[in-house]
């Protein structure tokens, strides 16, 4: 995705820079039209010019569409896992145990989870809300050593990636 952004940025910068250079250069070059008559004459006299230009434009449009589709797919996979029915059922059953285990850890106030990703690369997103004085390192270590491993075993996904985001709630108004 970043490569696409960088390529688009490079193309825009190059085209914009070239346009500015031509426009600000002054003289005869700046006074010429964007579609030079010489280009038109060359295009009319060359049989392959328009088909090649059209093919290039269609290729760019197709790349853009594929890129959009990839974004859409990635966004969808971040919201909902592409897993089969039995795995989904096992995950639902294991979800309760994982949440219960997480809420038993000291300092954990709330836990929410979402299974995302694909069957090849599943991903469990766990959002934990902890108290301001919670020992996050301990909570994280305990989850990794116990609850997450049990969840992997219960769902039959030994390569499940577990991503934990900690939020913290503070009782009193901020002393900062």
């Amino acid at each position: 995705m970043r490569v696409g952004i960088a390529l688009t940025g490079t193309a825009l910068a190059a085209a914009g820079g070239a346009g500015l250079c031509l426009g600000l250069a002054g003289g005869d070059l700046a006074a010429r039209p964007l579609l030079d008559p010489a280009v038109s004459r060359y295009a009319d006299g060359t049989a392959w010019f328009w088909p090649v230009a059209a093919a290039a434009a269609v290729a760019v449009a197709a790349c853009g569409l594929l890129w959009l589709a990839a974004h859409g797919r990635a966004m969808m996979r971040r919201r909902r896992a592409a897993l089969d029915g039995p795995t989904r059922m096992r995950a639902r059953a294991a979800e309760r145990d994982l949440l219960r285990d997480a809420l038993r850890l000291p300092g954990v106030r709330d836990a929410r989870l979402r299974l995302t990703g694909t069957a090849v690369r599943p991903r469990l997103l766990l959002n934990l809300t902890c108290t301001g004085d919670a020992v996050l390192g301990e909570v994280y270590g305990e989850l990794g050593a116990g609850a997450a491993e049990r969840y992997r075993a219960a769902t039959g996904m030994p390569d499940l990636v577990v991503v934990i985001r900690f939020r913290m709630v503070f009782g009193e108004p901020a002393p900062v």
Binding site: V3, G9, L12, A15
Partner: peptide, 18 residues
């Protein structure tokens, strides 16, 4: 010049975003 300037500004912005 306006369009070229916008493109010239948007290009580096996209590069930075990458």
């Amino acid at each position: 010049l306006g369009v070229a300037g916008t493109m010239a500004a948007a290009g580096p912005a996209l590069l930075l975003a990458a």
